[in-house]
């Protein structure tokens, strides 16, 4: 039975920097994504696209349509890179644990917390970019200064909720798979693995959609 480790597992130490297994897996995932995209870019075709190109175009068009639905008055390509990168990275990371020997990066609270902080930062970044610093900050005290702490608490808690939701789902999936594998052995964990795939994709989608909604709330004046 594989030991359940929920704390970061140091892999190597480069001076003061500790490279954990999570980070290494993330690099591996980034490398794979980069290679795939590089390969796809080299074979981009206008009239007869490859299946890979069609899949990537489908993903980006899905993101574009979702952004257009949420932000109809804003150029969708302003936020598509952020949302798309979140989807791709979190989605692939959620499924990485299915490969033996790899650790699911999103089953590490540091990773999900990092993504949540990025989501939080992007919300402020796009809010200030579109509305200006004063205009953006002013919405915290509207309609009254009294609401400022509530706004801050709400933003903090929703960011933490993002991180904890993704972490909890992925960790539970890994733990379930590990427990079932320890109990029943071969083939029995397969349904759970399939369920884990679905959950992983759904969680990636939820994380991206929530980030988009937060960004939209920061961009739109009356949000």
């Amino acid at each position: 039975m594989r030991p359940l480790v929920i704390s970061p597992e140091p892999l190597i130490r480069l001076g003061p920097v500790i490279i954990t297994k999570t980070v290494a897996t993330t690099w591996l995932i980034m490398a794979v994504i980069t290679l795939v995209c590089w390969f796809a870019k080299r074979h981009l075709a206008l009239k007869k696209p490859s299946r890979l190109q069609e899949a990537l175009e489908a993903v980006l068009e899905a993101v574009e349509n979702m952004v257009k639905d949420v932000l109809p008055d804003v150029d969708p390509w302003l936020v598509i890179p952020v949302i798309g990168t979140l989807w791709i990275l979190i989605g692939v990371s959620n499924l990485a644990g299915l490969i033996p020997g790899l650790k699911t990066p999103t089953a590490d609270i540091n990773t999900t917390f990092a993504f949540a902080v990025l989501s939080y930062s992007m919300t402020h970044f796009f809010g200030i970019k579109t509305r200006g610093l004063k205009g953006y900050v002013s919405h915290y005290v509207k309609p009254s200064w009294v609401l400022l702490p509530f706004h801050l608490i709400a933003e903090t808690t929703r960011t933490m909720a993002l991180a904890v939701r993704l972490f909890g789902n992925m960790l539970s999936g890994e733990m379930t798979a590990a427990i079932v594998l320890g109990i029943a052995g071969l083939l029995v964990p397969v349904p759970f693995a399939l369920l884990h795939i679905i959950i992983g994709l759904i969680q990636a989608y939820i994380f991206g959609v929530l980030t988009l909604v937060f960004i939209a709330g920061g961009i739109q004046k009356e949000a």
């Binding site: 490279i19 999570t22 540091n110």
Partner: peptide, 8 residues
Amino acid sequence: DFWTFSLQ
């Protein structure tokens, strides 16, 4: 873990 967080 600060480094993990930062690196991610």
